[in-house]
C-alpha cells in the first residue's frame, strides 16, 4: 500500500567563521572610458559568485553591471581569498569588493567635487554619472571624472579592500565564544509517498523557506536552494559511499545513486530577506544551508506516512522494510 506523509525540518547555519582568520581581498578601479575593473580572489565554481560580486561592484561604483569587468581565477594576478567554501563568498568577498569600490569611489568623488566646485559629501554616483544629491541635474560623466583623475590630477580612482571578520578565539576551557559573525535560518517541508510493500520512498514535493539576508540575485538564490534540495534528497534516500579496507566499493554513478530529474520533485521556494547589518547590502549567504533541512524533513515525512523512524542515512527501502516489519511484530504482541 502507498501511504503519504508530510514532515518538516528547520535549521540555522553560521556564516563568516571567526575562530581563525577568514579574509577576502579585492581591488577596483574606474577606467577612463567609464567602465570599471574589479579583481577578486573569490572563484566562481558555478554558484554565480562572479555575477553577485559584479552586481555589488556595479551598485557601489554607480556604473551599469555590463560595464564591470570582473577578473578572477588567476592567483598570480588577483588578491588573496580564503576560498569558495563555507557559504562565505557573497558575505566576505562581497564585503571586500564593496570596500575596494568605496575607496575608488571616494577618490572619484573628490576629483568630481573639484571639477564641479562643490563638496564631495554632497555627491553620489549612479548610472555612469556623478551627481549632486540635492540637485541631480548638476552632474558629470564618470568617464570624464575618471579621465581627469588619472591624467589631470595624477590620482587614479582606484581602491583596495580586505574583509576579515574579527578573529575571536574560543575559550579553551569551555569552548564558548562567538565562532561566527552571522547566521541564516530556514525551514523545509517534504511530502512523500512510501510504498509499504517495497519500502520505496517517492518525494512528491518540497517547500523551502530560506533567510539569506538581502538576496542580491534572487534567481540564483533560488537555483542554490533547488540544487541543495536535490543533494539533500540524495543524502536522505540514496547516496551512500561504501568503503571497505580503504577501497570505495561503489565509485560509479550506477552504484552511488545521485538523484535524476525524475527523483527531484517540484520545489516551491521562498526567500525571507532579513538584512544583516555587516553584510554587503545586507546580504548573508545561501550555498550550504539549502541542503541541510531536506533529509530530516523527508525522514519526518516517512514517520508521518508509515510510523517508522529511520535513524541511519540513507533511508533505503531495505531499512524502511526492516523497520516496518519490527513495527508489525510489536503490534502483533
Amino acid at each position: 500500500m502507498k501511504k503519504r506523509g508530510r514532515g518538516m525540518a528547520c535549521m540555522y547555519y553560521p556564516l563568516g567563521f571567526t575562530s581563525y582568520p577568514n579574509p577576502s581581498a579585492a581591488f577596483a578601479k574606474y577606467n577612463p572610458d567609464g567602465s570599471a575593473t574589479v579583481l577578486t580572489g573569490a572563484q566562481d565554481i558555478g554558484q554565480g559568485s562572479g555575477t553577485v560580486l559584479a552586481q555589488i561592484a556595479a551598485d557601489t561604483l554607480g556604473i551599469p553591471y555590463d560595464r564591470i569587468s570582473l577578473i578572477y581565477g588567476d592567483t598570480q594576478a588577483v588578491p588573496m581569498d580564503a576560498g569558495s567554501v563555507a557559504s562565505r563568498v557573497t558575505y566576505i568577498a562581497g564585503n571586500a569588493v564593496k570596500k575596494a569600490c568605496e575607496q575608488a569611489k571616494s577618490i572619484l568623488l573628490d576629483v568630481a567635487a573639484d571639477m564641479l566646485g562643490v563638496l564631495p559629501h554632497g555627491l553620489d554616483v549612479a548610472d555612469g554619472w556623478v551627481y549632486l544629491k540635492d540637485f541631480p541635474e548638476k552632474r558629470v560623466a564618470i568617464a570624464d571624472v575618471a579621465k581627469t583623475a588619472e591624467v589631470g590630477r595624477g590620482r587614479p580612482a582606484q581602491g583596495h579592500g580586505t574583509y576579515n571578520p574579527a578573529t575571536t578565539l574560543l575559550d579553551k576551557e569551555t569552548g564558548h565564544g562567538k565562532p561566527y559573525e552571522a547566521f541564516v535560518y530556514a525551514a523545509q517541508v517534504a511530502e512523500v509517498e512510501v510504498d509499504t510493500e517495497t519500502g520505496e520512498v517517492e518525494v512528491l514535493k518540497i517547500y523551502a523557506v530560506h533567510d539569506c539576508g538581502k538576496a542580491i540575485n534572487p534567481m540564483m538564490v533560488e537555483g542554490q536552494i533547488e540544487g541543495g534540495i536535490a543533494m539533500g534528497i540524495g543524502y536522505g534516500l540514496t547516496e551512500n559511499l561504501v568503503i571497505e579496507k580503504g577501497h570505495v566499493l561503489n565509485p560509479q554513478l550506477a552504484n552511488y545513486i545521485v538523484p535524476t530529474a525524475l527523483d527531484v520533485p517540484p520545489i516551491e521556494s521562498a526567500i525571507v530577506e532579513i538584512p544583516e547589518p555587516k553584510g554587503p547590502f545586507g546580504a548573508k549567504g545561501i550555498g550550504e544551508p539549502s541542503l541541510l533541512p531536506t533529509a530530516p524533513a523527508i525522514l519526518n515525512a516517512i514517520y508521518d506516512a508509515v510510523g517508522v523512524r529511520i535513524r541511519d542515512l540513507p533511508a533505503t527501502p531495505e531499512k524502511i522494510l526492516a523497520e516496518l516489519e519490527k513495527l508489525e511484530k510489536e503490534k502483533a504482541k
Partner: peptide, 14 residues
Amino acid sequence: ISGNICRCTGYAKI
C-alpha cells in the same frame, strides 16, 4: 533528461 545527471541545479530551472 533523466539520463543526464546534474549535481548543482536540482533540475527545476532546467
